[in-house]
Nucleic acid binder design. Structure first.
Lengths: 247, 247
DNA sequence: TTAGATAGTGTTGAAAGTACACTAAAGGAG
DNA sequence: CTCCTTTAGTGTACTTTCAACACTATCTAA
């Protein structure tokens, strides 16, 4: 018999659950930090985990990610992009769970954190001091997010998501250095960034110990197509498949 | 009350369905082709669609993609990587459906096609002659897959997935030209590809009208980390977000 | 006034990319 | 056999980009 709207019965199919999980980074005291929540319930009670949870039927995946992030941590107004979908059977002992993971950046760690009733703690961890064992396969998710962050830094304007409205070029260089983990040449950085035409000069300066620095603004006008400026060539992004990343 | 394995009840949550859909390309007569199935049932009956279907509880997402592809089209032994996950409410009129999409390449269009009981036809379409309207949001998925294909061609060894075991360097160049849609310089292509060290010479030649051509093999030994050779710089991949691609 | 600190520019040699002319090796027509 | 056509493959010179690093600029503090 032919199927129609009237005869279609979705409950025929056995269904997995769908969650979103968010890997969110910020920069604090010139160091990359990651936001984790400590789980209150089985499974993995007591373990630190990426914020996330089950999607609701009426919202898009991205909306789910924003809602879960805010519910579980209090953090909002973040830059968000989809990362990868993990769905191996057995990655969650409760039931079959498909996790759509998101990658997020936020400008500061100064938003008020809060715990939900699912968790006992929420905390920013310096990236070199995240707990050894995370819940579920979240270490794998984190590693993939890090490799994506480093890779995209080099050919997109992602780094601007970590800066305040106005900033100096050397602050921007500092972000690149922190995330890539290597020193960059000041002169070459200046030239590259200015030739890219992604910055707009303000008439502001910031005074300090030495020569005052000019402040710049990111040109959002040209970023409707999130345009690319590739400020150098070598991409670390050998593998596109997070299943192959180190665990 | 604290949740445990005994008290955990997954049926509390209202659940979406999860499908996989596969965008699969091949090269036929020097032109890129896409495999589509014609739907038999509501919704979108009569429309052409990407092969795919509901996942089963015991299999990984990639296994689902391979199974659905073979069940719906008969095609197997393909190169596969995850593309993006689409999950807007309303993208499927039946119920909330999360679609994990995969991107696939296959060496030839000579595998025997077959139709399943869900479909009335299966066919390879030249990429410039795919039907105007596809089922669901499959045009968006296709556009994203195309942009990903073009982009990854330039910094990975993806193109080798479209070639037979042995091939000539000019055949490889032809693939690049077909997919990127522009002419490439013969001499520069030779140099780039040979310096990359991704090819292994065979002692085979192929005779033809002019000077016989040497045949090469892809060096799989170096590709455990799917290594990169970036054969030129400019990436077309402005947007990483398929929601922004032209529909 | 000058030392120290931070900001920002210029220069030069090396490397890579591009265009295009050239040589090589086959078949086929006369 | 000769030479024209066809396809394969190499060489080279010009241009652009990259990378290292020396240099100049402008402030504070002593």
């Amino acid at each position: 018999m032919e199927e129609t709207a009237a005869t279609y019965d979705p409950s025929r199919y056995e269904r997995p659950s769908v969650t979103v999980d968010v890997v969110i980074f910020t920069l604090h005291h010139r160091e990359l930090h990651l936001l984790l929540v400590q789980r209150r319930r089985w499974p993995f009670d007591g373990y630190w985990a990426l914020p996330g949870g089950f999607i609701e039927m009426h919202e898009s995946l991205e909306e789910s990610a924003r809602r879960e992030l805010e519910e579980e941590t209090g953090v909002r107004d973040v830059y968000l992009e989809q990362l990868y979908t993990f769905g191996d059977p057995g990655r969650d002992p409760r039931t079959r769970v498909i996790s759509v993971t998101y990658f997020a950046l936020v400008r500061s760690d100064e938003q008020q954190l809060r715990v939900s009733d699912e968790t006992t703690d929420v905390r920013w961890f310096p990236i070199h001091a995240v707990p050894r064992e995370l819940a579920f396969d979240h270490e794998q998710v984190l590693n993939y997010a890090l490799s994506r962050l480093r890779s995209k830094l080099e050919y997109t304007t992602l780094a601007f998501q970590l800066l305040p409205e106005v900033f100096s070029i050397l602050e921007l260089k500092d972000i690149y250095e922190q995330i890539l983990g290597e020193k960059l040449d000041k002169g070459n950085f200046y030239r590259k960034i200015r030739e890219a035409g992604v910055l707009e000069e303000t008439n502001l300066v910031r005074e300090g110990r030495g020569r005052p620095t000019r402040l710049w603004r990111f040109r959002h006008d040209r970023s409707d197509k999130q345009f690319v400026f590739r400020w150098r060539e070598d991409r670390g992004d050998k593998s596109d498949d997070p299943e192959q990343e180190g665990a």
